[in-house]
Design a protein around this nucleic acid. Structure first.
Length: 1064
RNA sequence: GGGCCCGUAGCUCAGCCAGGUAGAGUACCGGACUUUUAACUAGUAUAGAAAGAAAUCCGGCUGUCUGGGGUUCGAAUCCCCACGGGCCCGCCA
């Protein structure tokens, strides 16, 4: 990968002074350096704590776009932070070849699909010759694999590439076989049937990219209820989504203009169904034999028996019945289905003479569901709307509401769905049914189960978005796949185990844990094998390929093995690798040849005189040395597994919670002992573009590598993370990216100029930290007010950043490191310049700034590794910044609170003065008078502050405070009078304190008596500069000072921290 | 249909869990800046003025916290309802 780069740093010449920074050179230089110095490699090191972190590996069917980068970048920042904290971090990456889309794409390339090829050419910028090679599916995977990997390297991800693998590598497949055999033995893999979208022409399941117009076939479950023809052994099945309405059926509807089929189903029953229903039933695994074709009209006026109520009901003609839905015959529930009601009305219009055996007027709707129709009833009252029991007929209300005229009215759909929703959520069954007062949502399931149990119905699947056509042009159906293999995530014991695992895991952000619990709740059987695609064969049933979400749940183990495949030729022993190998590594079980291994890795010697051949338990003969070296390797791998496992952190997008992440927990929970369960999951939201999810079909993707070329990796890393906190879905923004680009440039330039002006001092400072010289330079009395403040702020910021990192509030950490620290430094500059006219001069000055800059670049380094490494080396360090340590927090450095308060105070005064100047708009001001508040006021201030700090939950309104103050001073009349004299002051002070953050209150409280005079005096030069008033024209008085100049009697308005101000 | 999330400055997002202070970045505006001095004002070191703005710096600006109701002395924050936007539920990964 890096063969083209040299390690000679001069070659890159990134320290030159041209105004544009050569990010590409900087990036190449450090990528090369990290690679040469193996910075990202991780091996067993018992002297360090390990930290094993992974991200979901990519599926290589397209280049990475900015959206993918977020999860990876977060993980990388997390990894780099832990590395700086002194952990031995393992951050590996693999590639997921398992699945079908690559095969589909390859087929489309073979078929010269224009859309796809244009996409490759124009969006992904792939050469025609490469596209041509895509007729071979593996070439697609390999191409994008390389593409994605290059992108990851260019982004500076600290991945240990020695552990790379793909999911179709031979030993990986053995690993997956082991996983499935083990799961099978644990009894959580079962066989059953499963509905899928199906192309009869290809004989394959179809999903979105297999269909014309990229339609995802979706289907619902109907209940097909069988009505027996009176006096005949013939059944008329009808499909319904509302089985509970069986109690309200008055008749069946048949289309008398269409032909139906008489068929024998499953060699057993005779049914009358539409032609399309016959076909659908065949795909749904029913054996259909056609006997004859019959016209629908032949059944008109026949009677059928309701299988539940046993009532005899007639079959009547209706034109709204379509042959493509259900069986082509429907049951009529006029009271609750507007279609049925309208058809009934239409029939009644035909008149009695139309029928021989039936008087349609005798057909009365049967209301079986009560729901709140009050609003509608009020608007449309009419006698027609009552049934025989004087109950309101819901469907008729909706017919009126939509002004329906006949059964072909398009508004009937609307009326139907509205009534459906109303009754489903608010309706209850009435007393005509055995389910009186039960909610529909519950009854529906019960009736369905009852019907299925009594064999009066079957489940019937129907596409909801039909017609769906395969790319080959054939019409698609719902097919029931037989003998489908499932992972039974519904298994109670398994679920319990998974829940236990979840509970002891650290889920970040914690509020997302509820989402996991929900998923665990409804998770049931999950198909785990397919007929097509790349992947591993199901070990006991080689017709099936293990499905992609099932072979990617515990693969983190494999990163440990992959290193030995890539660097120790483990593949040479592939014939020795079977379940016993994984049993040994993961469980420490010794089967087969592993019985020859002792616990310390040495061998149990063969009997004397044995040859160099050995025989394992399967009676296979091996060369002894060959076996020994395999066992040696296995022992090494086992040691490494024990060192790195369990997994410490797993990063993923939140869209994977319902599947991958949940399966990940389930599989770990059952396959690993509790002490090896994963410890943490970190979930992040996705990156949107213009409010929409990035996707190829939307054409709103930004290829990652292109963006790196333009803005550099660091800018993109920062932009991705600063956009929003973890869980938030963020909108990508180029203006922010550009802003960050210039920000990083600014940082770079400042470090450069600082170095150039002070290079000899800086070099002498290289090893100063923790030395006696450092202590000497930081002697309290040597430091100015602003120096102390800067060091305090530095300390506090590092503490904030560290704390944010620990909670993985990455954005907060970044914001502090990138922006807030800069703000502090700006203030420092202003103070310095105003006092001395320069930023640095003495060694001490340089040292303070050097301290700030050095620590800052460290806290920035997880976010911008390239910039940080560059500047780290600029300052003369000749090791990698990532082999260094995270800046420590100096708890008792100096009087932190006081330093902060001082500068805060100065800044507040400056703001106040500016505001007053602005309001008065008086430019002729020449003198500034400041009055500091009296002892009495200060005393009261602390008393009130004490109440706030100590009694967090008490009422803090004015009355309460007064009461408390007075009651606490009940013996002391002097204090009492002070309190009474200063009620206005107290009220204002309460407001002052309320407007402080809790931290600020705490700080002021901890400082105790605050001397306002000191910071004022120290900042006179600053105030003078900023206000453009000579320093000698500032006058500071105590409120009660005798020789006070107070022409406007302002002094009495002074309050602690808020001196009274008068401008002349 | 089920589950989840979001709605705060023009834009992208913090703040909400633990109620009292609305805050960052970006955009925008002004100034510093550069050029010109032909015309205008003072007057010749120049300033105003006019024009230009790549970067940088300084200063400034912006809010019915989606709406309604409730709890509270006090609500962006807690509770309820409504509205608007998004995500996930596949033999996709």
């Amino acid at each position: 990968m890096f063969a083209n780069f040299s390690t000679d740093p001069d070659k890159y010449n990134t320290f030159n002074k041209s105004s544009e920074i050569k990010w590409d050179l900087i990036e190449k230089k450090w990528l090369d350096y990290w690679d040469k110095n193996k910075i990202n490699n991780s091996d067993i090191d018992y002297s360090k704590k390990k930290f094993f972190i992974t991200v979901a590996y990519p599926y290589p069917n397209s280049p990475q776009h900015i959206g993918h980068g977020r999860t990876y970048t977060l993980a990388d920042v997390h990894a780099r932070y832990y590395k700086l904290k002194g952990f031995n971090v393992l951050f590996p990456m693999g590639f997921h070849y398992t699945g079908t889309p690559i095969l589909g794409m390859s087929k489309r390339v073979q078929g010269k699909d224009k859309d796809l090829i244009d996409n490759f050419k124009n969006i992904f910028l792939i050469d025609q010759s490469i596209i041509d090679s895509f007729v071979e599916p593996l070439n697609i995977a390999k191409y994008f694999h390389n593409e994605i990997k290059s992108g990851m390297i260019e982004m500076g991800y600290s991945i240990d590439w020695r552990r790379e693998f793909t999911t179709i590598d031979s030993i990986y497949k053995k690993f997956i076989s082991w996983q499935f055999k083990t799961l099978f033995e644990l009894g959580v893999i079962e066989q059953g049937s499963h509905p899928v979208g199906w192309c009869p022409n290809d004989g394959n399941p179809v999903s979105q990219h297999d269909t014309l117009g990229d339609i995802e076939p979706s289907f619902t479950e109907y209940v097909l209820i069988k009505f027996k023809l009176k006096n005949e052994h013939v059944f008329i099945p009808v499909a319904t989504l509302r089985p509970e309405t069986i109690f309200g059926v008055t008749n069946l509807w048949i289309n008398s203009n269409e032909n139906y089929l008489k068929v024998i189903v499953n060699n057993n029953e005779t049914w009358i169904i539409s032609k399309s229903a016959a076909k659908k039933l065949e795909f749904q695994n029913h054996d259909i034999k056609i006997i004859s074709e019959v016209n629908g009209s032949e059944f008109v006026e026949s009677f059928v028996e309701n299988p539940i109520t046993n009532l005899l009901i007639p079959i009547l003609p209706a034109s709204f019945v379509t042959m493509d839905d259900g069986s082509g015959i429907v049951m009529s529930v006029p009271a609750h289905a507007p279609f049925d009601m309208q058809a009934l009305i239409d029939i009644k219009k035909l008149g009695n003479h139309f029928f021989k055996a039936i008087n349609p007027n005798e057909l009365q709707p049967i209301t079986i569901i009560n729901s709140n129709l009050d609003k509608l009833k009020f608007e449309f009252s009419d006698t027609d709307m009552l049934d025989a029991n004087q109950q309101i007929i819901p469907s008729s209300i909706f017919l009126k509401k939509y002004f329906i005229i006949d059964q072909n009215d398009p508004n009937l759909e609307k009326a139907t769905s509205e009534l459906y929703t109303l009754e489903f959520y608010e309706g209850v069954m009435n007393s005509r049914t055995p389910y009186s007062d039960m909610p529909i949502s519950k009854v529906r399931e019960e009736v369905k189960q009852m019907l299925l149990k009594s064999k009066n119905s079957i489940i019937f699947y129907e596409l909801t978005n039909k017609p769906v056509y395969c790319r080959c042009g054939a019409l698609c159906f719902v097919k029931i796949l037989n003998n489908q293999w499932f992972l039974n995530y519904g298994n109670e014991k398994w679920k319990e185990l998974a829940l236990k695992c979840l509970r002891q895991m650290d889920i970040i952000p914690s509020e997302i844990i509820g989402e996991f619990e929900n998923v665990f709740d409804w998770l049931k059987e999950r198909a785990c094998a397919r007929k097509t695609g790349l992947g591993t064969l199901l070990p006991w049933d080689k017709d099936w390929i293990i499905e992609s979400l099932s072979d990617s749940v515990i693969y983190m183990v494999y990163y440990i093995i992959a290193k030995y495949v890539n660097t120790n030729n483990l593949e040479n022993y592939v014939n020795l690798i079977d379940e016993s190998f994984f049993d040994y590594i993961i469980y420490g079980k010794k089967n087969k040849s592993f019985t020859k291994l002792k616990d310390d890795g040495s061998f149990i010697l063969e009997e004397e005189g044995s040859s160099s051949k050995t025989i394992d338990n399967d009676n296979k003969v091996f060369d002894m040395n060959y076996l020994k070296s395999f066992l040696n390797l296995s022992f090494e791998i086992k040691k490494e597994f024990e060192y790195y496992y369990p997994l410490d952190s797993r990063h993923s997008g939140r869209d994977l919670i319902p599947n991958h992440l949940s399966f990940f927990i389930f599989n770990h929970a059952i396959l690993f002992p509790q002490n090896l369960w994963p410890r943490q999951i970190v979930v992040n939201g996705s990156v949107l573009m213009d409010g929409k999810k990035m996707s190829k079909s939307m054409g709103n993707i930004i290829p990652l590598r292109k963006a790196i070329q333009q803005y550099g990796a660091d800018s993109i890393r920062v932009a991705m993370l600063v956009l929003g906190e973890l869980l938030q879905d963020v909108d990508f923004s180029f203006s922010i990216l550009k802003g960050i680009y210039t920000k990083l440039k600014e940082i770079y330039n400042f470090y450069m100029s600082f170095y150039k002006n002070n290079n000899s001092i800086i070099e002498s400072l290289l090893n100063i930290f923790n030395s006696s010289e450092e202590k000497l330079l930081l002697e309290n009395e040597n430091l100015n007010m602003e120096d102390k403040w800067l060091l305090t702020r530095l300390n506090n910021n590092i503490s904030t950043i560290t704390f944010s990192f620990e909670k993985l509030k990455i954005r907060e950490a970044l914001n502090t490191a990138l922006y807030l620290m800069d703000k502090d430094f700006e203030w420092y500059k202003r103070r310095k310049f105003s006092k001395y006219g320069h930023l640095y001069q003495t060694k001490k000055d340089v040292f303070i700034i050097y301290t700030f800059l050095t620590k800052r670049i460290k806290v920035l380094s997880p976010f911008c590794p390239f910039l940080s490494e560059e500047l780290w080396h600029l300052f003369g360090n000749n090791n990698s910044i990532f082999t260094n340590t995270w800046p420590s927090i100096d708890k008792n450095q100096i009087q932190d609170s006081l330093n902060e308060e001082n500068e805060q105070y100065i800044s507040n005064i400056l703001n106040d003065l500016n505001k007053i100047l602005k309001i008065t708009k008086n430019t002729s001001i020449s003198k500034v008078f400041l009055y500091l508040s009296s002892e009495e006021k200060n005393y009261l201030y602390w008393e009130i502050l004490r109440l706030f700090v100590n009694n967090q939950n008490k009422n803090k309104n004015f009355g309460e405070i007064m009461k408390t103050l007075l009651s606490e001073s009940n013996q002391d009349d002097k204090i009492k009078s002070i309190i009474k004299k200063n009620t206005v002051f107290i009220k204002k002070t309460i407001d002052d304190i309320l407007s402080l953050s809790p931290a600020e209150r705490e700080r002021r409280y901890n400082i105790g008596k605050f001397d306002e005079f000191k910071p004022l005096l120290d900042s006179i030069t600053l105030l003078s500069d900023e206000l453009k008033i000579p320093a000698e024209n500032f006058y500071i008085y105590g409120e009660n000072q005798k020789e006070i100049m107070d022409p406007n009697k302002k002094a009495k308005f002074s309050r602690p921290f808020k001196p009274a101000i008068f401008l002349e």
